[in-house]
Design a protein around this nucleic acid. Structure first.
Length: 275
DNA sequence: TGGCGTGTTTTTTC
DNA sequence: TGAAAAAACACGCC
């Protein structure tokens, strides 16, 4: 389940491996993953290079060297993986696309659920969701004041719903939302309008600290996340509530509980996170 | 075996 | 108009 730290780790792991290599072939095995740009458009990438890899929220942004403003955008959703191979390897189940480079290496897109999407465009505004993203917690401009401004017109919305809303804050998914709420000592169902200034400040601080710590650990491998080198993350060793049903709270020892919030499994400590 | 769970965005409804 | 709810996606799992 790639959230911001995992997507950032993929970006970093691929940067030194695939940039400035001539693209020899582009194959799309499952056209359904193409949200914008058809197979012919991908074939047109042959002969060019990936010049830069950026990231915005959970979107990976590959900039082509030519035409200079062409962007290949990838969203991994739940189970998408971009895997680099030094040498060609036989196709695996759920391999949906492959870029082959002139030096014999390749970049393969594998996605069990096939929920991930590709966009190929010269206009970032055409990438659904990309333009409406909120600030990321690690942006310099992000602050408790920004968070409070974003949520002030939705006093009845549950705090976890707001944390998962990418137009409010970009980058959190189910794992980090639960971890942020635990660290801030806030119950996931609390309506935004009931949060005190102090709680909002703790939430903003927790978003920054937890994402930063997870990036340093190369993300969380809960089920099947790996980076571009097929390496697992390390932050699962630091999770305090996510997927810890009936295990003791690291603060108080009470058993972690699970409830559904907006249809999503939510783990919390009933003693440290009061409703 | 046929629902259920899964994460995120999009679409629909309120 | 904005927010909440439902739908869509595709597969593994039990």
């Amino acid at each position: 389940m790639p959230e911001l730290p995992e997507v950032e780790t993929v970006r970093r792991s691929l940067t030194d491996l695939v940039l400035h290599k001539e693209i020899k072939a582009v194959e799309i095995f499952k056209p359904a993953i193409l949200a914008l740009g058809d197979e012919a458009a991908y074939a047109g990438l042959v002969g060019y290079e990936l010049a830069e890899i950026g990231r915005r929220g959970k979107y990976l942004l590959f900039k082509l060297n030519e035409p200079a403003d062409l962007l290949w955008v990838v969203h991994l959703r739940m189970t998408g993986k971009l895997l680099y191979h030094q040498q060609p390897e036989p196709l695996q189940k759920h391999d949906h696309a492959r870029l082959q480079f002139a030096d014999g290496s390749e970049l393969v897109y594998n996605d069990t659920r096939a929920f991930g999407r590709f966009w190929l465009t010269q206009d970032a505004a055409q990438v659904s969701g990309l333009n409406s993203l909120g600030l990321e917690p690690l942006d310099a401009e992000f602050s408790a004041a920004y968070w409070q401004e974003k949520i002030k017109r939705r006093p009845k919305t549950q705090v976890k719903v707001a944390l998962l809303d990418q137009t409010v804050v970009a980058g959190l998914g189910n794992i980090y939302a639960d971890e942020v709420l635990f660290q801030a000592g806030v119950h996931p169902e609390r309506p935004l309008g009931t949060l005190t200034d102090e709680e909002n400040q703790r939430l903003a601080q927790a978003m920054r600290e937890i994402l930063q710590a997870s990036i340093e650990q190369r993300g969380t491998t809960f089920r099947d996340y790996v980076d571009g080198n097929n390496q697992k993350g390390g932050y699962q060793e630091f999770l305090r509530v996510f997927q810890k049903l009936n295990q003791p709270c690291p603060n108080c020892g009470q058993q972690i509980q699970r409830i559904k919030v907006a249809g999503r499994s939510s783990y919390f400590c009933p003693h440290c996170q009061l409703k």
